[in-house]
Design a binder for these strands. Structure first.
Length: 905
RNA sequence: GGGCAAUUAGCUCAGUUGGUUAGAGCGUUUCCUUGACAUGGAAAAGGUCACAGGUUCGAGUCCUGUAUUGCCCACCA
C-alpha cells in the first residue's frame, strides 16, 4: 500500500466548527503535487476544455473574478468527475495600457518618466514589475481552489504567443486585411495613444450648445452655426448644409470667414447634414470629427490637426497654441462672447467618449494608424452562431453579438505605447528618404490587394536588410499592437499554434467559454473571428455569459471606489468554499449580482452545517466499517425515503449543471442537504443509528452528497470524504453520481409527506400552546381512510419520536378528548391533550383562523368547478385533481366547524 | 434614436414548456443551550407577483401598451 500522505490523520477528532484555514492550503498543495489538475492530449477520454479569460497581470482578485472562476471550476470539476479529460488552461494577459500606466506611476514616484528612461530600460522595468507582481492573481485563484492545469500557464507576451501574434499579423497582411492609413481615431491625451472604438466608453454629459456667428465674406451677412466643442473651430475648413435646406441656398459659391482666425471656409452641401439639428448649418472640422472627416474626403477639403498628442493645441491654433484643450475652450468662449460672436448658449446633453483605462475624455483625431479590415473575418463567425455551432447562454446575447458583428468596423490595432507586441513591420530609411513617395497606395481599399509602402517590410522575423536596396539598418515600426490582438488568439495560441500538435487537435475547439458581457465585443467576438480564420473552426461550443458583480448600491465594484468586498478577506474569514457557494447561490443565470459581506455568511453557515453533519456521521459509523457493506436487509421506509430523495437530487443537480443553471443546482443541494438530509433524515435515523442497514445508507447518502457538492465546495468535501470509508485517493477523482430513476420511490415519498405533515401539525399545536419542547404529550389521531390509517400506524414510532409524544392513539373511531387542541391535515384530525385547562378563546381563534383559510380556498375552487368551460376544456386530470381537492377542503371545513361547536358546548 | 434587462414578502432575490394554498436566504416574533451543529433546532407572521388592457377554462408565467430603474449600442455637430 502506497497511499500518498493525507493532510489529516483519519482518526483525528473533528472540532465543533469547520475551520477552513486548517485544510485549504494543505489540500490544494496535495492536489497540485499529485497532478490532479493536469490534463493530457494522449488521454483516451473525451476532452472538455475551458480557456481562462486571462486576468491582467496588474489584476487583483475581485468578486467578478471570484464568480467567473468559480463557475469555470465548477464546470471543470464536474466534467472531470464525469469522465472527461478536463483541461482548464490558465494564463495572464500583459494588458498593454493598464500595465504601462501602473509602471509609469511607480516611475513618477521616483521622479522619472518613461521617456527619460528610454524604451529599452523602460521595458526592463515592466518585465521586472511583472516578475514581482504579475502572478499575484494566480496565487489568489489558487486560494479560491481553481483546478487549472498550472504547468501549462501561458502569458500573452511569452515567446510562443508572441510568435503567434506576428504570424497572424503577417498572414492578415498577406490577405490584404491589414493596412495602414490616416483616419479619424480615438485619441486618449493622457495615455497618449490611439484606442479602438470599443475602448471608448460613451457617457452622457450635460454640456452646452454654442451658437456662433460666422461672417459671409464680402457681405455683412452672417451665418449662425451651433457647436458643442467651440475650440474645434480652429480646425474648421468648411461649412455645410443640407442640399434641400432653402435657408442656405444663397451661400453656394460664397466663402465664409472663420471667426478669430479669419480663415476662408468653403461652403458645401451634403445630404448627411441634418437640417433639423441646431441651425441646420454645420461647421466642418475634418481632423477632429468622424462625420466631418467623411465630408472632407468627399468634398476634398483641407484637414487641419490642431492638437498635440498630450491634448494641448499645436501651431495650427495660432494664438491659442500651447493651451490645454479645455482651457482653450474656456478662452475661446470668452473671446467669442467679447466679440459678440457667441449669440446664444443652451444646455445640451450629449454622449462624450472616455478612455476605458483612465476615463479621460478622448479626442477624435486624424492619425496614421494600422487597421484590420474586419468584414471578411466576421462572415464565418456570424454564420457559425446562426447555425448554432457556438451557442450563447443566456440566448439573448446572441442578438447583441450578431448586431455588432453585422455592423463591424475596421479595427485600429496600433498603440503608441511601449509595452506590448511590437508591430512586425520594418522600414528602410534609405528607400524612404524621399518622403513624397512613401505611401504608395493612397486610396487603399482593403480586401483585394496587399497594402504596401515604399521601403516597408512586413515580416515574421526582423529582416537583416532591406529587400529592395539591401540597406542593413532597418527601423522597426515604433508602435505596439492592441492587447486584444494577442487575446483574440488565446484559444489556440496557448496550445502552441502556429505549430501543429496533438494538444491543438485534441483540445481545440474548446468546450465552454465563461465570461462577463462587458467583453463580448473586445474578446469573445474577436476570438470567434480568429478561430475561423486561423483554425477553420469555432473556438468554443458554448459561451456562458454571467453578470457583473456590484455592491449593495448597484455600483460596479472597483478598488478605486473602495466599495469592494474583497474575496480574499471572505476566504480568510469564512473560507473559499463559503465564498464559492455563496457567490454561486446569489447569481441567477446571467443577472448582475449585488454582493455584500453578509451574503457570504450563508456559505459559511452551510459549510458549518456540512461539517457537523459529517461529524455526526463519523461519530456514529462503526469504527471499522465492513469491508463490503453487509448483505442488505430490506432498508427501512425512512432509508428508502432518503435514498429516493437523494436520487432525485442527483438527477436535478446534474440536469441543472448541464443547463448551466448553477444557482439552481446550488439551491437544490442546499435544500436537500440541510432540510431533507439533516433536518429529517438524520433525526429520523437516530433511533436506528446502530443498525448496519442504516449505517450503510447514511454513508451512501453522505458520500453521494459530498460528491455532488464537491465542484461547488472542493475543500470541505475532500476533507470529510477522506475521513469516511472511501475508495480511491481523492474525491476529485471519484465518479460523479449517476441518477437511477428506479431508485425513486414515489410511494414512500407520499407516505413520508403524510408523516412529516402530521409531525408538523402536532409541533404547530405544541408551539401555539407553548408546550415546553422537552415535555411529552398525549396525542390521539382520528383517520377515516384505511390507507392513511395503515401508514400512520406503521410510522407511529417515528411520529411519537419526532413530536415528543408519550402516548399515541390512532384509530377510526376516536372521540375528541376533553381539554385538547386540534389540528387538521388533509382528512386526518389530530388531538393534542393539554395538561391544564383549555383556553377556549385561544383555541377558538386558532380554529376560526383555519376555517377562514379553508373557506377562502373553497370559494375560489367553487368558482372554477362551476365554470362549464373549465370542466369541458381543461384536461381531465386537472379537473379531477380540483374536484378531489374540493372534497377534501369541504371535509376539513366540516370538521373544523364541528370542533368549533364542540368548543362552545 | 435603437436594443436589452429589471419591477414578486421589511430587505436581497428564485420561480423556461400557463395548471395544487407563489418559494428561498436575511431580518422579525415565540419557544428551546436536547450528546452533530446557537455559524444551531422547532413553530409562526409577512405578498392585490409595477400598472392598464388582451389571449385562455385557467396568467407571476404568453401578447400589447404605460410607468420607473439600470445597462448596452448609435457620426445629430
Amino acid at each position: 500500500m502506497n497511499t500518498p500522505p493525507s493532510p489529516h490523520a483519519p482518526d483525528q477528532e473533528l472540532p465543533k466548527a469547520y475551520n477552513p484555514k486548517a485544510v485549504e492550503k494543505e489540500w490544494y498543495q496535495t492536489w497540485m503535487k499529485r497532478g490532479y489538475f493536469s490534463a493530457s492530449s494522449h488521454s483516451k477520454k473525451k476532452p472538455y476544455t475551458i480557456v481562462i479569460p486571462p486576468p491582467n497581470i496588474t489584476g487583483i482578485l475581485h468578486m467578478g473574478h471570484a464568480l467567473n472562476n468559480t463557475l469555470q471550476d465548477i464546470l471543470i470539476r464536474y466534467k472531470r468527475m464525469s469522465g472527461y479529460e478536463a483541461l482548464w488552461m490558465p494564463g495572464t494577459d500583459h494588458a498593454g495600457i493598464a500595465t504601462q500606466n501602473v509602471v509609469e506611476k511607480s516611475l513618477k514616484e521616483e521622479g522619472l518618466t518613461r521617456h527619460a528612461l528610454g524604451r529599452e530600460k523602460f521595458l526592463e522595468r515592466v518585465w521586472k514589475w511583472r516578475e514581482k507582481y504579475g502572478n499575484t492573481i494566480i496565487r489568489q485563484l489558487q486560494r479560491l481552489g481553481a483546478s487549472c492545469d498550472w504547468e501549462r500557464t501561458r502569458f500573452t507576451m511569452d515567446e510562443g504567443l508572441s510568435r503567434a501574434v506576428r504570424e497572424v499579423f503577417v498572414r492578415l497582411h498577406e490577405k490584404g486585411l491589414i493596412y495602414r492609413g490616416r483616419y479619424i481615431i480615438n485619441w486618449c491625451p493622457r495615455c497618449q495613444t490611439a484606442l479602438s472604438d470599443e475602448e471608448v466608453q460613451h457617457k452622457d454629459v450635460t454640456g452646452h450648445l454654442y451658437y456662433l456667428k460666422y461672417t459671409i465674406e464680402g457681405t455683412d451677412q452672417h451665418l449662425t452655426i451651433a457647436t458643442t466643442r467651440p475650440e474645434t473651430m480652429l480646425g474648421d475648413t468648411a461649412v455645410g448644409f443640407h442640399p434641400e435646406d432653402e435657408r442656405y441656398r444663397h451661400l453656394i459659391g460664397k466663402t465664409v470667414l472663420l471667426p478669430l482666425l479669419n480663415r476662408k471656409l468653403k461652403v458645401i452641401e451634403d445630404a448627411d447634414i441634418d437640417p433639423q439639428f441646431g441651425t441646420g448649418a454645420l461647421k466642418i472640422t475634418p481632423a477632429h470629427d468622424p462625420v466631418d472627416f467623411r465630408l472632407a474626403q468627399k468634398h476634398h477639403l483641407e484637414m487641419i490637426n490642431i492638437l498635440n498628442p498630450d491634448g494641448t493645441l499645436n501651431d495650427a491654433a495660432g494664438p491659442y497654441k500651447g493651451l490645454d484643450r479645455f482651457e482653450a475652450r474656456r478662452k475661446i468662449i470668452a473671446e467669442l462672447e467679447d466679440r459678440r460672436i457667441l449669440l446664444e448658449t443652451k444646455e445640451h446633453v450629449h454622449a462624450v467618449g472616455h478612455c476605458y483605462r483612465c476615463q479621460t475624455v478622448v479626442e477624435p483625431t486624424l492619425s496614421l494608424q494600422w487597421f484590420v479590415h474586419m468584414k471578411p473575418l466576421a462572415r464565418p463567425a456570424i454564420a457559425a452562431v446562426k447555425e448554432g455551432k457556438t451557442v450563447f447562454t443566456p440566448a439573448r446575447w446572441t442578438k447583441v453579438y450578431l448586431d455588432w458583428m453585422t455592423n463591424i468596423k475596421d479595427w485600429c490595432i496600433s498603440r503608441q505605447i511601449w509595452w506590448g507586441h511590437r508591430i512586425p513591420v520594418w522600414y528602410c530609411p534609405k528607400c524612404r528618404a524621399d518622403e513624397a513617395k512613401i505611401i504608395s497606395s493612397k486610396n487603399f481599399t482593403p480586401g483585394n490587394k496587399i497594402y504596401t509602402e515604399t521601403g516597408m517590410m512586413v515580416s515574421r522575423d526582423a529582416p537583416k536588410k532591406c529587400a529592395a536596396c539591401g540597406h542593413p539598418d532597418l527601423i522597426q515600426d515604433a508602435d505596439v499592437l492592441d492587447t486584444w490582438f494577442s487575446s483574440w488568439l488565446w484559444p489556440f495560441s496557448t496550445f502552441g499554434w502556429p505549430e501543429k500538435n496533438k494538444d491543438l487537435s485534441f483540445f481545440y475547439p474548446t468546450s465552454t467559454l465563461v465570461t462577463g458581457y462587458e467583453i463580448i465585443f473586445f474578446w469573445v467576438a474577436r476570438m470567434m473571428m480568429a478561430g475561423f480564420e486561423f483554425m477553420g473552426k469555432e473556438p468554443f461550443k458554448q459561451v456562458y455569459i454571467h453578470g457583473i458583480v456590484r455592491d449593495e448600491t448597484g455600483a460596479k465594484m472597483s478598488k478605486s471606489l473602495g466599495n469592494a468586498v474583497d474575496p480574499i478577506h471572505i476566504i480568510d474569514e469564512f473560507g473559499a468554499d463559503a465564498l464559492r457557494f455563496a457567490i454561486i447561490s446569489i447569481t441567477a443565470e446571467g443577472q448582475d449580482v449585488y454582493a455584500s459581506k453578509e451574503k457570504f455568511e450563508v456559505g459559511r453557515n452551510f459549510a458549518n452545517k456540512i461539517w457537523n453533519a459529517g461529524r455526526f456521521v463519523l461519530m456514529n459509523l462503526s469504527s471499522k466499517p465492513p469491508a463490503k457493506p453487509a448483505k442488505r436487509a430490506a432498508p427501512s421506509p425512512i432509508d428508502r425515503w432518503i435514498l429516493s430523495r437523494l436520487e432525485q437530487t442527483v438527477y436535478s443537480v446534474t440536469d441543472s449543471l448541464d443547463r448551466s443553471r448553477f444557482s439552481e443546482a446550488a439551491a437544490v443541494l442546499y435544500d436537500f442537504f440541510w432540510h431533507q438530509f439533516c433536518d429529517w433524515y438524520l433525526e429520523l435515523a437516530k433511533p436506528n443509528i446502530q443498525s448496519k442497514e442504516t449505517q450503510a445508507v447514511l454513508q451512501k447518502v453522505f458520500d453521494t452528497a459530498l460528491r455532488l457538492l464537491h465542484p461547488f465546495m472542493p475543500f470541505i468535501t475532500e476533507t470529510l470524504w477522506q475521513k469516511l470509508p472511501h475508495e480511491g485517493q481523492s474525491i476529485m477523482q471519484s465518479a460523479w453520481p449517476v441518477a437511477d430513476a428506479r431508485r425513486v420511490d414515489k410511494k414512500i415519498e407520499s407516505e413520508m409527506d403524510l408523516v412529516i405533515g402530521e409531525i408538523q401539525a402536532i409541533r404547530n399545536v405544541r408551539s401555539a400552546w407553548q408546550i415546553n419542547p422537552k415535555e411529552q404529550v398525549t396525542v390521539a389521531i382520528k383517520v377515516s381512510r384505511e390507507k392513511e390509517l395503515q401508514i400512520l400506524r406503521d410510522y407511529s414510532g417515528t411520529i411519537a419520536q419526532m413530536a415528543k409524544i408519550s402516548s399515541l392513539q390512532i384509530g377510526k373511531n376516536i372521540k375528541r378528548p376533553k381539554e385538547s387542541a386540534v389540528a387538521n391535515i388533509g382528512r386526518v384530525e389530530t388531538y393534542v391533550i393539554l395538561s391544564g385547562l383549555v383556553d377556549i378563546r385561544v383555541e377558538r381563534e386558532r380554529i376560526e383562523g383555519a376555517l377562514e383559510d379553508v373557506e377562502k380556498m373553497i370559494r375560489a375552487l367553487e368558482i372554477r368547478l362551476r365554470n362549464e368551460d373549465f370542466l369541458k376544456k381543461a384536461p381531465k386530470e386537472i379537473v379531477d385533481k380540483e374536484k378531489e381537492k374540493a372534497a377534501e377542503l369541504e371535509n376539513r371545513k366540516h370538521r373544523l366547524e364541528e370542533n368549533l361547536r364542540a368548543l362552545t358546548e
